[in-house]
Design a protein around this nucleic acid. Sequence first.
RNA 1: GGUCCCGUAGUUCAACGGAUAGAACGGAAGUUUCCUAAACUUUAAAUAGUGGUUCGAUUCCACUCGGGACUACCA
Length: 596
Amino acid sequence: MTPETFIQTKAAEAIKSLYGADVEQGSLQVQVTRKEFEGDYTLVVFPLLKVSHSSPENTGKAIGEWLRENVSEIAGYNCVKGFLNISFSPLYWNELFNDILSDNDFGQLPSTGQNIMVEFSSPNTNKPLHLGHIRNNLLGDSVSRLLKACGNNVMKVTLVNDRGVHICKSMLAWLKAGNGITPENSGKKGDHLVGDCYVAFNDIYKKEVDELVAGGMTKDQAEKEAPSLKEAHEMLVKWEEGDKDVRELWKTMNGWVMDGFDKTYRELGISFDKTYFESETYLLGKELVQKGLDMGVFVKDPDGSVWCDLTADGLDRKLLLRSDGTSVYMTQDLGTAERRFSEYKLDSHVYVVGNEQNYHFQVLKLILGKLGFKWADDIFHLSYGMVELPEGKMKSREGTVVDADDLLEQMYDEARKTSEESGKLADMSDDEKAQLYRMIGLGALKYFIIKVDPKKTMLFNPKESIDFNGNTGPFIQYTHARIKSILRKADDQGISHKAADVLASIEPSAKETRLIKLLSTYPAKVAEAGAAYSPAVIANYAYDLAKEFNQYYHDTRILQEEDQDVRRFRLVLIQTVAEVLVKAMDILGIQLPERM
RNA sequence: GGUCCCGUAGUUCAACGGAUAGAACGGAAGUUUCCUAAACUUUAAAUAGUGGUUCGAUUCCACUCGGGACUACCA
């Protein structure tokens, strides 16, 4: 039982006994006491004035007095305005610490039995991944782990957009180049190679448009009439018809891109349980259009196109079927959602997609609701903001896009420089060093991005992200390494630090109490983060814990402590801190080194 | 025009409707006979504005002012 629920339970008894009123435990507000006041936890008494019919001070004192007399774990109290500050006895903290130690799955919440699908990443196969995708990938991956820690069955999926005009453009440029370049013969990563083709296409296209405009055409017209664009569209038609050559090339080039993506995913430590390809799902949803028409929630225009009228909901009319009978993105999304919910008996579905698609998901949920699917409300769009650079937004046209692979290299390199400066790793092998730099560079990047509230637009400053001081991943990694260093030294000296060594009679100091208190809140933090789909909560918790440890570490001698039992207690305590840091950072997908 | 999101120290981020709004970076000033100074300590500095609801508002509501996204027979 956490201290909060303990106080809630006892306070409810106190209120029952003092005022004869039943209050729900959950309605009692208990929070950690601010450090400028004396006490461990604080009960907010304002909401209780209705049943006490007394002033805040008197109510608080009455409950405090009752608790002190009737609950042995509670040693004292003080009441400031409407805040009842409660102090636990030192032995209570020892007991609580032992509860944590005996819980093998500390931080893993009990199973909910719920099936949750998380879709994220969902790249286009015409260009390599960039910084924006990284935010998506890291969020999706950590939210998946978070939901798992909350006791859910989680399935990670991605939907690869492998079909459409954009791929045809890359294919066309590749053919026009005519040099038969491949990842194998050029040594170039597949996604970058195809991305270059896409850029090459746009150069050709732009040139054609300029020429047409120079020949007297308006810009709008020229942009539609450019021969290369027409060619791309023809190619798409051939693709749809299943033209053998087009399909062959399409398959080859997509394969290159997927190989490239796989490398980047592996580098980031990200994987999926299932990969969907749009070329296989883009026809889904058509039968739902008929269903909607039958139900009278969709309308067919004279030209044959089908729409859903959402003006009554404050939105616009949404197209679901073109006049030529082909479907659009929305149609497909309706279909895939329905299939996934029924196929996997989903209790909820999280889509990690940028906030530029807020409107899309608003419409998607609305239409599914109109079609009578109750689970429409179980769709959660985890919408995240753009990543901006100090110079402003990333614009592919201006070449300011930060490439994912380049960024990772840059992070590793920076980690190497900083580590070499510190000169602590002289005895490590080159292999070990390289692995460590990877861990640190990746940790810095992941932490920097995940610690920010997803829905906010964030600023990515490459220089600051690699800073190893302050609220950063490397700071937490460093803290972990130091704890491990102490434990290694204890091992060398033959000092045991097993959980079973902790004596129940040891009274933790004030600083140790603070650490135990923080450790005990971890499961609640996991639950809170899960409810909000926000790994940022976990990131900030890990930082608090690391910081708290550093303060403790700074003025507490551990190995030099004379009293063996106290020394063991301290060692087990910091070992537990290290373990919880590992758990928390694991949710973020960040590894912690043994030394650095 | 419509829908949605965001405005907190110089900067990057926090704060279930709770006490005197927290950190970090940067600025200023300190701390190494010590288990990792990538640390720690001290210090200056912020809720865009006006109303409303409440015992209590950064948080909820309304309006204003700023910033952003979307509003395709594109995906």
